[in-house]
C-alpha cells in the first residue's frame, strides 16, 4: 500500500515508498507553533494528527529501531563499551536519537522477575517544554500534525531546551553546537512514509498512523493484555503535556516509573513556566520604566549642582584644615 494522493499523512509505517515523487507536505505552511515568537503559518494547513505507538509488551529489545534511526538520519554514534548491560550507547546522544532502555523489575505483586524494555526518545508533546524554553526564534517548531522539530539552522546551542524538556531528551552536539533529538522522521512523514524505527521493527512493537488509529490499536492491545492478567495495562499519553505524539502501551501503566524512570505525571516545570511566563514582561517593564524614569528626571530635573558658595566653603575648609587647629566637631572624634 502506498499513500493515497488525497491523504495528508501516512497511515502506516509498513507501506513501501510511493513509486512516484511526492512533494513534501511539512514545511512553514504547517507550522502552528514556533519557539521565541518565530514565524508561524497564518492559516496553517490542517493535517491529521499522527502518532507513534510503542507497545513495550511486544518489544524484544533487538535494537533494529536504533539501527534504522542511525541509518536514516545518517548519524555517527561512537563505538561504545560494554559495562555489563544491554543499553548501547549508555544514554541518548546527539548522534543517537532513540535508545532501548532495559530494566530488571522484581514485581512485588506477582513475585515475577520482569525484563522491561522501553524505547526512549522524543515524545513529541502537544505542549512541548523544549519549545517553551527556547530563546531562538524558529529553532523549535511544531507542525499541525503534532510533530515537534528542531530547525538546526536557527539553533544557537544554548541548551535551554534540555532544561525545558520534562523527559530529558534533547542533546547538544559538542561538534556542531546544535540540539538534536528524534524528528519523528518528519522528512519521511512529509513524503508519505512512516518513521524509520517503525518500519524496521520486526515485531510491530512500534507502529505509526493517525493519533486516533493508534489510540484504537492501543485499546485493542490493552484489552488483550488485561485478558492475560495485566490488569493495570494502559496507554501512556500523559495529559500534563497535553498528550504526546509518541505513546506507549505499558503493562504497568499504574507505575510508569518502573520503565527506567518514565515520569508518572510529566509537565513543564513551574520554574520554567515562571521564567518564560511572568518573569519576561515584568522584567522588561521594570527595566523600561526605570530607564524612562531616570532619563526623564535627568532631562527635566535641574539636578544636584555644586554652587559657587560650595566652592568657597571648600576653599575655606581646606585652608583652615591645612593651617591646623580647626574647631572640633562632634563627629570628628577619632581624628588626630
Amino acid at each position: 500500500m502506498t499513500i493515497a494522493p488525497n491523504m495528508d499523512s501516512p497511515r502506516t509505517a509498513t507501506a513501501n515508498p510511493p513509486t512516484h515523487p511526492v512533494p513534501p507536505n511539512l514545511g512553514q505552511a504547517n507550522v502552528v507553533r514556533s519557539s521565541a515568537g518565530g514565524p508561524v503559518a497564518e492559516n496553517p494547513q490542517p493535517l491529521t494528527e499522527v502518532a507513534k505507538l510503542i507497545d513495550v509488551s511486544k518489544c524484544i529489545g533487538c535494537k533494529a529501531c536504533q539501527s534504522a534511526c542511525i541509518e536514516w538520519n545518517d548519524t555517527q554514534p561512537e563505538v561504545g563499551v560494554n559495562v555489563g548491560v544491554y543499553e548501547n550507547p549508555h544514554d541518548l546522544t546527539p548522534e543517537m536519537y532513540t535508545l532501548m532502555r532495559f530494566t530488571e523489575f522484581d514485581n512485588p505483586d506477582t513475585g515475577d522477575f520482569e525484563w522491561l524494555i522501553r524505547k526512549d526518545g522524543c515524545m513529541h508533546c502537544a505542549e512541548p517544554g523544549c519549545l517553551k524554553a527556547c530563546p531562538a526564534p524558529g529553532a523549535i517548531v511544531q507542525y499541525s500534525n503534532g510533530i515537534v522539530d528542531f530547525i538546526s539552522e536557527n539553533c544557537i546551542g544554548c541548551g535551554y531546551c534540555v532544561s525545558g524538556c520534562p523527559f530529558d531528551i534533547p542533546r547538544i552536539s559538542p561538534v556542531t553546537h546544535v540540539a538534536k533529538k528524534c524528528t519523528l522522521c518528519s522528512d519521511r512523514v512529509a513524503v508519505g512514509q512512516g518513521p524509520a524505527c517503525a518500519k524496521a521493527c520486526p515485531t510491530h512493537a512500534i507502529t505509526f498512523g493517525t493519533k486516533d488509529d493508534m489510540k484504537a490499536l492501543a485499546a485493542e492491545r490493552i484489552e488483550d493484555l488485561k485478558s492475560r492478567g495485566y490488569e493495570n495495562a494502559g496507554l501512556y499519553d500523559p495529559a500534563g503535556v497535553g498528550g504526546t505524539h509518541v505513546m506507549y502501551v505499558l503493562h504497568h501503566n499504574d507505575k510508569p516509573q518502573v520503565y527506567d524512570g518514565l515520569p508518572e505525571d510529566p509537565k513543564i516545570s513551574d520554574v520554567v513556566q515562571n521564567w518564560k511566563g511572568p518573569a519576561k514582561p515584568v522584567g522588561i517593564a521594570a527595566v523600561g520604566l526605570a530607564a524612562i524614569g531616570a532619563a526623564a528626571m535627568a532631562l527635566f530635573h535641574r539636578g544636584n549642582s555644586v554652587s559657587q558658595e560650595d566652592e568657597a566653603e571648600a576653599r575655606e575648609l581646606v585652608q583652615e584644615e591645612l593651617r591646623g587647629a580647626p574647631v572640633e566637631r562632634p563627629h570628628d572624634k577619632g581624628n588626630a
Binding site: Y160, S163, V271, N274, W275, A279, G283, A286, V287, A290, A291, A294, M297, A298, H301, G303, N304, S305, V306
Partner: peptide
Amino acid sequence: ILVHAVSAVLIVLVFILHIFAALWTRG
C-alpha cells in the same frame, strides 16, 4: 536559569541607578 534572569533584571536596575546618580549629581 530563573535566578540568573531575575538577578540580571536587578543588576540592570542597579546599573540604571548608577548612571542616573552619576549624571544627576552634577560634577
